[in-house]
């Protein structure tokens, strides 16, 4: 019984968020709005994680299953993909390396500045 109640809570929460997203003045995916709303509901204690587990756990653990249908659909787009294959691979590889490097260095710099600030306070 509880499984059904928990499933309903999660699904209704998603549906309401999806409706709200439709009223926003800019395009925003309903499922991501649902995640943000749920995060704040958890923070404020309106919903507790135990109200949604183990349904949420099951869905999170099996996310790859949910993406099998769109992945299989690639067979309808093979011609398009083949026509831009090297560009496709180059974008994936180059942007991953650039994003990795800049993110890591920005965090390194932030941590360095924070430590310096802390050090100054201790010396003063």
């Amino acid at each position: 019984m509880k499984i059904f109640a928990k499933t309903t809570i999660l699904f209704v929460l998603f549906m309401i968020s999806d409706i709200i997203a439709g009223f926003l003045p800019f395009p925003f995916p309903g499922s991501i709005l649902a995640m943000i709303i749920l995060f704040f509901m958890l923070l404020s204690g309106i919903i507790k994680t135990k109200n949604l587990e183990p349904v949420s756990d099951f869905l999170l653990k099996n996310m790859p299953l949910l993406f099998i249908p769109p992945t299989v659909s690639i067979i309808s787009y093979l011609d398009i993909l083949k026509s831009v294959l090297w560009q496709f691979l180059a974008v994936c590889i180059i942007s991953t390396i650039v994003t990795f490097a800049l993110t890591a260095y920005s965090v390194k710099l932030t941590v360095y500045l924070l430590n310096k600030k802390r050090g100054n306070k201790e010396n003063a």
Binding site: F11, I32, M35, I37, L52, E53, S56, L59, M63, L66
Partner: peptide, 14 residues
């Protein structure tokens, strides 16, 4: 199967 994607994404909040 894809229908569950919305609720699963919401669950990422947890």
């Amino acid at each position: 199967v894809s229908m569950f994607l919305g609720p699963a994404t919401a669950a990422l909040a947890i």
